[in-house]
Design a protein around this nucleic acid. Structure first.
Lengths: 252, 252
DNA sequence: TCTTCTATGTAAAATTCTAACATATCTTCG
DNA sequence: CGAAGATATGTTAGAATTTTACATAGAAGA
């Protein structure tokens, strides 16, 4: 009863962006203003709304307005990346141990993943925070130097780290891809880390939105034949797809 | 004059996330509250802040992954922690190498620190992200299992990590303190890590807001005599202070 | 059925915000 | 240089909103 009403308020707020107490009062004529206030208070505690003088506004509404460098980056090709993330999420089984990188696609993946019992390694700071929200995840952060542009870590010492750890699956992404140069990224130590991850994992799933195709970054960390599954979007060129499938790599 | 003040307010707000009018009044003693209100109004028009009852909050703050337990935690005893953080920040010299923990006070410290050339190690995910915003910082994240309640990492492997690293200064905080039980925290591996950090550092600065006094957590990682400087707030009891000063520990 | 806890309602008190006007400061053009 | 207009700031009273405290009703459990 209470919960339902609160959810309804949250929905309304997400829809309208902002509501005054008066408007809420009209929508819920059978409860007092004080109750609505208390509901808003609770939603504020949950971090879903912001109370402002006269009423409240949806956090989502605020988040729409553009912002910082990193946050901004996450808004490019959002839709494709979310779809890719959803596909990837559907491939993950319970009780599995896996590695995720720290890229923006991984960020979406972290959000889309079902809250099952999983052991997850990552080198992404923001990704780790997102993963930590899920009750059933066991999250391990890889240490190392923090790269400011993508908020992930890399370190030559990672090798020692991996000595005692195992994961079945590596779900990673690349900054650039061409058939000739393979999958590449912008930092040497990042490439080293990803190679290590690939070697350690039983299978490698690559998430690659089509905007990365044709670009080349300085450090290659994998070639076509090094991966097991390619997860991409609908704009992925058919002729490239053939290159993968003829090597028995699943493209989805 | 007006513009400068408004920009200053915006900056402050980005730093602190949220400010009350009272706090703003303290920061700008030479203008009236009404003027500050008008400034906030203008910033709101520009879409950079959101005015809430009692003050305003930064849009950027909201755009961060808002709403989590962690963010909520950061609103308790905010003022004291900021003051402590400011004191601590003033103690840091350029070209220094230091360790910071992942607590909320460290979070404020990260925001308050001047953007000098510094090498910083931390086990806090959110702290690392905050530190990464500064151009001149070299940030290293300690890896390990992610503790969901405070978003920091700890790992028995950390010892190996420290073999090749050096820092002069450890600025850490505790969840609880009593003279008998010393400084304590809630997780074994966290305590282990902090002990290690203490041993590694030439000097240990402890940030402790007075709300922690008299509390006891399961794992002690330092006693009074183990630290070099205690940074606290004005509510710190005088008799306790004596306990520290008589052991030549600076209390500030 | 009684007790306890949670949810809700009511109204006064406290706080914060706005509006309106007064004063000061800064611009600019004759 | 000086006056008129524009902009910025200060002050206050009154309006609106929010909080607090207490009362009541309803649900859950023993």
């Amino acid at each position: 009863m209470k919960r339902e009403r609160i959810e309804e308020i949250a929905e309304l707020l997400d829809k309208r962006g902002k509501l005054t107490l008066e408007q809420l009062d009209e929508q819920f004529p059978n409860v007092s203003q004080m109750t609505l206030r208390r509901d808003l208070f609770q939603l504020e505690q949950e971090g879903r709304i912001i109370r402002v003088r006269g009423g409240a506004m949806s956090v989502k509404e605020v988040q729409k307005v553009s912002g910082e460098p990193y946050t901004k980056k996450t808004t490019i090709h959002t839709d494709e990346k979310i779809k890719i993330a959803q596909k990837a999420a559907s491939l993950i089984d319970e009780n599995c141990s896996l590695f995720m990188d720290g890229g923006t696609t991984a960020m979406y993946l972290a959000k889309e993943m079902p809250d099952k019992n999983l052991h997850i390694f990552t080198n992404g700071l923001a990704v780790a925070i997102e993963l930590a929200q899920k009750k059933n995840f066991h999250v391990t952060m890889l240490g190392g130097q923090v790269m400011k542009d993508n908020l992930s870590t890399a370190s030559p010492v990672a090798r020692a780290y991996f000595d005692n750890t195992n994961f079945e699956l590596a779900i990673i992404s690349a900054s650039a891809f061409t058939p000739e140069n393979g999958f590449s990224c912008g930092a040497q130590i990042e490439a080293d880390l990803l190679k290590l991850v690939r070697a350690k994992a039983k299978a490698t799933y690559m998430m690659l939105d089509s905007s990365k195709i044709g670009k080349i970054m300085p450090y290659t960390f994998a070639h076509i034949e090094d991966i097991d599954v390619l997860i991409t979007d609908d704009n992925f060129p058919a002729e490239l797809k053939a290159e993968f499938t003829k090597r028995n790599i699943v493209v989805m």
